[in-house]
Every structure is written in C-alpha cells, then in structure tokens.
C-alpha cells in the first residue's frame, strides 16, 4: 500500500517499465537507418544555413544560441555527438525534448544544423578563466 501510494498506478508502472526497452530498440534501429542518410547530408551541409535553421526551428531556445546548453537543455556543442545519434534522438525523443519529425525539420536542414554545431570552436579551459577560479 505504501509503495503504491508513492508512485503511479500499477498498470501505468508496467507500461513505463516496458517503455525504455521499446524506446532503445526504436532508437537503435533509427540510428542505423539514419546513419547512411545523415552521413551523406553532412557532406553537403552548410554551417551558415545550419545556424539559421538552429534559430528558426527553436533549437536555441533550450540549448542556447551556440549549443552550449543550460538548465533547459543539454550541451550540444562544441564536440557534438555523432550525427546518427543526434538524428535518432530528435526523431524519436519522448522525454523532456519534443520530437522533430521530417515534416518540421528535413534531413537536409538537420544536416546543416549538424554542420553548424561542428563549426563551433572549442571552449576555453576553465582553469584558464580567472573568474571561474578566483572565488574568494
């Protein structure tokens, strides 16, 4: 009784427990399929267009205008994760991040966004920033 009251209904709990496995499968499958297309897209991608798409499609809202992340979204850049991983995630996301289908964000636009993320230079070493170290 105690445990039940602390969580959601048993049927929902059961569904929830199955969800991660299904989600992982879908993500892996999608990643495999998308890898080929994504790699091709990345070859012809434009960082400049990607920057525009990053802003136009609302990516900046949670991830910052340079993909740095923050309390509302994870860091995307510098050093973005592989395009296949990102593609699989945004097409199938069912967590705090809403899904972006190809109707909203085409493969080409996604490729451009990835090129933009790749173009973002490395961050300075935090040890070289006095403001992050001289706290007294």
């Amino acid at each position: 009784m105690l445990i039940l009251n602390r969580s959601i209904s048993p049927s929902k709990a059961l569904l929830r427990n199955k969800k991660p496995a299904i989600r992982s499968y879908v993500a892996c499958l999608s990643a495999s399929i998308l890898l080929l297309f994504s790699t091709q897209n990345a070859l012809a991608a434009s960082a400049e267009k990607g920057r525009e798409n990053f802003m136009k499609n609302g990516c900046w809202q949670c991830h910052g205008t340079w993909g740095q992340g923050g309390s509302a979204g994870l860091k995307l850049a510098p050093n973005p994760k592989p395009l296949a991983y990102i593609s699989a995630f945004i097409r199938n996301s069912n967590g705090p991040m809403p899904p972006y289908t190809t109707k909203v964000l085409s493969e080409e636009d996604l490729g451009d966004i990835y090129a933009f993320l790749q173009s973002i230079p490395a961050s300075p070493d935090p040890k070289t920033i006095p403001l992050l170290n001289d706290l007294k």
Partner: peptide, 15 residues
C-alpha cells in the same frame, strides 16, 4: 566550472 566555460565568449552573453 567546465560547464560554465562553454560559450564563455559568446554574444549574446552567456548566463
């Protein structure tokens, strides 16, 4: 500290 350093020189200014 490492997270704060990301986009340190960005404009608009990082939070």
């Amino acid at each position: 500290q490492a997270a704060a350093a990301v986009a340190w020189n960005a404009s608009p200014i990082s939070t």
